[in-house]
Nucleic acid binder design. Structure first.
Length: 391
RNA sequence: GCAAGGGUGGUCGAGUGGUUAAUGGCACCGGGCUGUAAACCCGGCGGAGUAAUAUCCUACGUAGGUUCAAAUCCUACCCCUUGCA
C-alpha cells in the first residue's frame, strides 16, 4: 500500500492539475497549504478551514513542536492530528528552515545542528534522524527530509557545500524514515488502530540557490535517493525575484513527472500563479496569515494595507470580488477600526480572508488548467493585480 | 482671601541660562513582512521650502524685563490642583 497517491488529471503547458490522495483527505493540486507551525493556523479556527475555506492539508513544524510541547507529549496524546483535532492531511516541515533562519543561535556539524532554543536558551540538537523520529511521532501524512537552506546570496562554493550536506542528510533521513515506517506499521497493527494504519510519505528537497548547475546536481542526488515527492527549497530567501522564476523554469521540467513538486515557502498570489505555469504543484507560505495579522490584505486588485487612513470611511469589503464570509459581511472601515483599536478579531478576519483568497485562487488555477485556459487566466489575474495596485 | 504646588508640541510627560524645534511613552501617518523566534519590525511626526541639504518662520499660559544668549532667571497678570479659612 502506497503512503500517498498522486495522479495528473490535466495539463496545460507546464501547468499540471492533479489529485493527491492521503489516507485522510483528497487534495486537488495545484494546492496552497496554510501554514500551521505550532499546530494551529494562527488566528483561524479549524472549523473555518474545514467548512468554508475547505483546506485539505496544512503544515506543522518539527522544530517548534519539538521544543513545545515536545514530540513525546504529542505522541502520547495520539499524534498531531488527534492532539490538535485536525483530521485532514498534515505535512510537517523538518526543521531545516529553522536551521537557516535561526542562524545566530546554531552550531552546524556533519552530524546535525546544535541550537539554542529561542524559547528558553536551552541547548537542543536536531539531526536527520531526530527530525524523522519527531515527524514520525507527529504522524503527518507527508514528512520533509532534514535539509540545510543557505541564504539566497551566498557564493557558489558555500552553496555547493551546503547542497552536498543536504544530500547526505537526505540519505540519512530516508534510511531512518524507512526504519521508522517498519516499526510504525508493526505497532499500528498491534494497536489495531485503523486510522493510523497507513505509512507516511517522505519528500526530498532540492537546494542550490540561484545556481542552475548546482540545482541540477542537487536534483540528481535527491532523485537518486528516491522520494514520494520533490520539494524546491531555498527560494524567496532574499534573492531577486527573477532568480526564482529562472530556477523554476530550468528545474521543474527536469523533475520526475509522476511525483508532486512542492515549492517551499512561496509565495505571493502572483508567485503562485507564475510557479504553477512553470510546473509546480504544491505551495505553502506564511504570508496570508502573517500579513493578515499585521493589517495586510491580499485581494484580486492587489495588496492593501488596512491601516491606511483612506479606509477610515470605506464601506466596501476588502475585495468586492471575493465570496468569503469576511468580504460578504465586514467593511474595510470596520476592519480598519478593529485593527486600529488593537482588537484581535482584525487579525483573525484578515487572515481568514487572505487564506480564502489564496485557496480560491488555486481553485481557479485548477479549473483553468482543466479547461485548457490557464494561460488566459494567468494573464488576466496578473493584469488585475497590477491594475489594482496602480492607485 | 491665605498657603503650597503647577501651566511644555495631538496627548501624557522630561528638561531649570547656551550643543533645544525641545528626551521618552502613547496617539497619529507611512512602509515592510515569502518552508512563522513576527497580534511584529522599521521610518516619519510644528510650519514653509528642497530630489535631499541649506535656509526661513512660529513655539514651552499671557505681557513685559534681565542677559551676548531664556522653556529655563525677575515682575505683573490669567488659569489649574490641593490644603486652610
Amino acid at each position: 500500500m502506497k503512503p500517498i497517491d498522486w495522479q495528473i488529471t490535466a495539463q496545460d503547458g507546464e501547468a499540471r492539475a492533479g489529485i493527491l490522495r492521503t489516507r485522510r483527505s483528497v487534495i486537488e493540486t495545484p494546492v496552497f497549504m496554510p501554514v500551521g507551525t505550532q499546530g494551529t493556523v494562527k488566528g483561524v479556527r479549524f472549523e473555518w478551514l474545514e467548512n468554508e475555506l475547505d483546506a485539505r492539508i496544512i503544515l506543522g513544524n518539527t522544530y517548534h513542536l519539538f521544543l513545545r510541547p515536545g514530540a513525546e507529549i504529542i505522541r502520547n496524546l495520539g499524534g498531531l492530528h488527534k492532539f490538535s483535532s485536525w483530521n485532514r492531511s498534515l505535512l510537517t516541515d523538518s526543521g531545516g528552515f529553522q536551521v537557516f533562519s535561526l542562524a545566530d543561535l546554531r552550531k552546524l556539524t556533519e552530524e546535525g545542528v546544535e541550537f539554542r532554543s529561542h524559547v528558553d536558551g536551552d541547548k537542543k540538537f536536531l539531526s536527520p534522524e531526530i527530525s524523522m523520529e519527531v515527524q514520525a511521532a507527529l504522524g503527518a501524512e507527508i514528512l520533509m527530509a532534514f535539509d540545510e537552506c543557505p541564504p539566497g546570496d551566498v557564493d557558489l562554493e558555500a552553496t555547493r557545500k551546503s547542497l552536498e550536506m543536504t544530500a547526505r542528510w537526505a540519505k540519512r533521513s530516508k534510511e531512518r524514515f524507512n526504519e521508522l515506517q517498519k516499526q510504525r506499521v508493526d505497532t499500528d497493527i498491534a494497536r489495531g488502530a485503523a486510522d493510523l494504519s497507513g505509512k507516511q510519505a517522505l519528500f526530498g528537497i532540492v537546494q542550490g540557490a540561484g545556481h542552475l548547475d548546482l540545482r541540477r546536481t542537487s536534483l540528481e542526488k535527491t532523485v537518486e535517493i528516491g522520494f514520494d515527492g520533490y520539494a524546491i527549497g531555498g527560494l524567496s530567501v532574499g534573492e531577486e525575484k527573477s532568480v526564482m522564476y529562472d530556477v523554476l523554469e530550468f528545474l521543474a521540467p527536469q523533475m520526475p513527472k509522476d511525483a508532486p513538486r512542492y515549492l517551499m515557502g512561496v509565495g505571493t498570489p502572483e508567485d503562485l500563479v507564475e510557479a504553477v505555469s512553470r510546473g509546480v504543484d504544491m505551495f505553502d507560505c506564511v504570508l496570508p496569515t502573517r500579513n493578515g495579522r499585521t493589517g495586510g490584505a491580499f485581494t484580486s486588485g492587489g495588496k492593501l494595507n488596512i491601516r491606511n487612513a483612506k479606509f477610515l470611511t470605506d464601506s466596501e469589503p476588502l475585495d468586492p470580488d471575493c465570496p468569503c464570509s469576511v468580504c460578504s459581511r465586514y467593511s474595510r472601515a470596520y476592519l480598519r477600526h478593529l485593527y486600529q483599536t488593537g482588537e484581535m478579531l482584525a487579525a483573525t478576519l484578515i487572515s481568514h480572508h487572505n487564506l480564502a483568497f489564496f485557496l480560491d485562487t488555486m481553485r481557479k488555477v485548477r479549473d483553468s488548467i482543466k479547461l485548457g485556459e490557464f494561460k488566459q487566466f494567468r494573464e488576466s489575474f496578473i493584469y488585475k493585480l497590477r491594475e489594482g495596485e496602480k492607485d
